[in-house]
Every structure is written in structure tokens, then in C-alpha cells.
Amino acid sequence: MLLKQMKYFMSVVDNHSFTEAAEQCYISQSAISQQIKSLENEFGVHLIKRNNRQFSLTPAGEYFYRHGRELIDEIEHFKNETKRRGTDEELTLKIGYLRCYGAQELQHAIAQFASLYPEVSLSIMNGTHEELYNLLRFHDVDLVISDQRRAFNQDYFNYELLYSDCYVEISTHHPLSEKKTLTLNDLKRVSCILISTKEQQDTEKDYYQNTLGFSSPFLFAETLEEARLMIASNRGFLPIEAIGTLTEPVQGIKRIPLYHKDKQLQRNYCAFWKKERTNYYIEEFAELLRQLLNADC
């Protein structure tokens, strides 16, 4: 059985016509009929039931069409991927993630991906939500791991990873550290520490203040490590999401669930990438990370 014969058969069914299929495939009508007859001879069954100028598919023909279409699509993807690997001098995957991200699954996903696809060079960078959005928009990264702050954009794949529980990290020396849960009202007189570059401080403050409802004074740190040093010295609290498995807080810091009324707050985390730039490796990495994040759910 030749791949061309399969494509001729698909074309006849898709066009509901031998004549139109022959024109589409740039061969004569008699030739396309002969090729399909050869297919039937090879299988020893009829695929098409002919009735003058009309035809219908036999049960065998319906099965062949349905699964043959899937097989042709797989072969086309296989051909394109082989061609791409042969023309690219170096395969790269550039991943961006939030500066405040502290869970372990991203590291595990990167390690597993590197083991599975050693031919791909990984480039990892972090930033604030807005910085990552601009990196993705201008093709400086291929894939971004971030919280959802905008309505989903039709130009991007918005691959939902996990709804993460929200917590507060606060000094064990602060009186609020004795509570089992905290609310934004509890924290309104305590400084809120945000992780941001100097250029993005106003944007981060505006989001936490006007979108999420934080009414605390704000302090800023450029890294997660710097933020936790500020917490340990009792300068404020850090809002943090459990997007995966967080390491245990160091001595002097307590992690407490953040609630609104009777329910713990949650944030939606996603993998984002441009539809026009999608490829096998981006999709594989996003799925690998999603599986790791949801393994214990």
C-alpha cells in the first residue's frame, strides 16, 4: 500500500467525486480509479460501493477513511519535524517564569525535559508578569509560566496548569504568625513585600492594590531570597502561591493560608505561548510541567 494511494482515496471521499479528486491530485480520473482499485485488491475488500456516477463507503471504507486520515496527519507531522530538525542548526527552547516562583516542579520539568530531549538547548529567564508578557510578545521567549492577569488572548495558547492556593509568609516574631489563617483585612497595617524590578514596581503595586484588593503599604525586593530576608527581619509579609510543592519556610518564617471569607484564595497559573510559533517541544514541556504539578492532586 502506497501513501499516494491513501491520499487519492481521501481526496475522493473529501470531494465526493472522482473527477474533482483527480483534478486536485493532478492525475486522470481513470488513473485515480485504478489506484483505489489496487487498494481494494490489496485488502481483498471493497472500500467504495459504486452506483453509476455516485458512490458510498462500505463499512471497511469508512474505517479506512477515519483511521487513514489520522495516519496521514501523523506522517505529515513526522515529515515536517524531520525536515525542521535537518534545517535547524541548533534547537532552542526559551522559557520564562515569574521572579516570585518558588516551587520545585519547574526545576524537575526542566531536568526531565533536558534528559528526554538532549538535542534542545534550554534558555531560562525570569521576570515580573509584565516583563514576561513583553518577552513573549516580542519573541524573546517561546513559553511563559505565569499567573493569569488578563482575559485569554486568541493569538496565544493559554494552557491552564493549576489553580494554586494563596499563602502569606510572615516573620514568626510578628503577632499575626500565631493565627491559623489570615485575611487581607488582618494584613492591612503590615507592609506587603512584592518581588519586582524597579521599572515594574508601579505596575505590580497597581495590580495587587486595585485588582487583588491589598490595602497594605508596599515594599519591594528584586529576588525571592531578598524578600525572605526582609520577612525574617520582620519588615513585612510576602504573598506567595503554592504552584506546586513549595520548600518548607526557613527558621524565623511562617507560611499561613490567605483567606477571603471562608475560602482560601486561589490564582490560576498557565503556560502561555504564541499560536504562530507553536512546536512539538513547547507543547511537550507544557504538558510535562502540567503532569508534575497535578501528580499529587
Score class of each variant (00 low, 15 high):
residue 198 K to Q: 13
residue 276 E to R: 14
residue 296 D to P: 00
residue 54 Q to Y: 14
residue 204 E to M: 12
residue 271 A to Y: 00
residue 47 L to P: 02
residue 98 L to I: 10
residue 19 T to W: 10
residue 116 L to P: 02
residue 44 G to V: 06
residue 77 H to D: 15
residue 209 Q to N: 07
residue 269 Y to V: 05
residue 88 D to H: 13
residue 146 S to D: 08
residue 23 E to C: 05
residue 291 Q to I: 09
residue 47 L to E: 00
residue 126 N to K: 08
residue 91 L to W: 03
residue 272 F to C: 02
residue 143 L to A: 03
residue 38 S to P: 02
residue 206 D to C: 10
residue 245 T to Y: 01
residue 140 D to E: 15
residue 8 Y to N: 09
residue 289 L to H: 01
residue 102 G to Q: 06
residue 105 E to Q: 11
residue 182 L to W: 01
residue 24 Q to L: 11
residue 149 R to W: 08
residue 175 P to V: 08
residue 160 E to T: 10
residue 103 A to M: 05
residue 21 A to S: 02
residue 294 N to G: 05
residue 113 F to Y: 10
residue 95 I to W: 00
residue 117 Y to S: 11
residue 29 Q to V: 09
residue 287 E to D: 13
residue 200 Q to M: 13
residue 131 E to C: 00
residue 272 F to G: 00
residue 210 N to F: 07
residue 59 P to Y: 06
residue 77 H to C: 12
residue 58 T to V: 01
residue 135 L to V: 05
residue 165 D to G: 10
residue 154 Q to N: 12
residue 153 N to H: 14
residue 221 A to V: 02
residue 114 A to F: 08
residue 212 L to P: 00
residue 207 Y to T: 06
residue 91 L to H: 03
residue 155 D to Y: 07
residue 237 F to M: 01
residue 19 T to S: 15
residue 64 F to C: 02
residue 65 Y to S: 07
residue 242 A to C: 04
residue 149 R to C: 04
residue 201 Q to Y: 05
residue 64 F to H: 00
residue 255 R to I: 06
residue 84 R to K: 15
residue 235 R to Y: 11
residue 55 F to Q: 04
residue 164 S to M: 03
residue 6 M to G: 06
residue 213 G to P: 09
residue 43 F to W: 11
residue 107 Q to Y: 12
residue 118 P to M: 06
residue 136 L to H: 03
residue 67 H to E: 13
residue 205 K to F: 10
residue 230 M to I: 04
residue 191 S to Q: 09
residue 98 L to N: 07
residue 112 Q to W: 04
residue 246 L to D: 06
residue 126 N to R: 07
residue 131 E to T: 08
residue 158 N to D: 15
residue 104 Q to L: 11
residue 157 F to S: 08
residue 157 F to T: 11
residue 164 S to Q: 04
residue 225 E to P: 01
residue 234 N to T: 03
residue 26 Y to I: 02
residue 236 G to N: 02
residue 209 Q to S: 08
residue 271 A to M: 05
residue 261 K to I: 12
residue 46 H to S: 15
residue 113 F to D: 08
residue 19 T to H: 13
residue 220 F to E: 03
residue 91 L to G: 03
residue 281 Y to E: 01
residue 143 L to D: 00
residue 280 Y to L: 13
residue 259 Y to P: 05
residue 139 H to Q: 14
residue 169 E to K: 08
residue 198 K to F: 09
residue 17 S to E: 04
residue 247 T to G: 11
residue 296 D to Q: 14
residue 88 D to Y: 12
residue 107 Q to F: 12
residue 165 D to Q: 13
residue 269 Y to H: 11
residue 234 N to E: 06
residue 80 N to K: 15
residue 5 Q to G: 12
residue 35 Q to N: 14
residue 226 E to H: 14
residue 130 E to C: 06
residue 211 T to N: 09
residue 119 E to G: 01
residue 107 Q to R: 14
residue 224 L to C: 04
residue 49 K to I: 10
residue 244 G to M: 00
residue 99 R to G: 04
residue 290 R to K: 15
residue 41 N to F: 13
residue 125 M to R: 13
residue 138 F to H: 15
residue 55 F to M: 03
residue 292 L to I: 03
residue 263 K to E: 15
residue 144 V to T: 07
residue 241 E to F: 10
residue 64 F to G: 00
residue 14 D to F: 08
residue 67 H to M: 08
residue 122 L to A: 03
residue 26 Y to R: 07
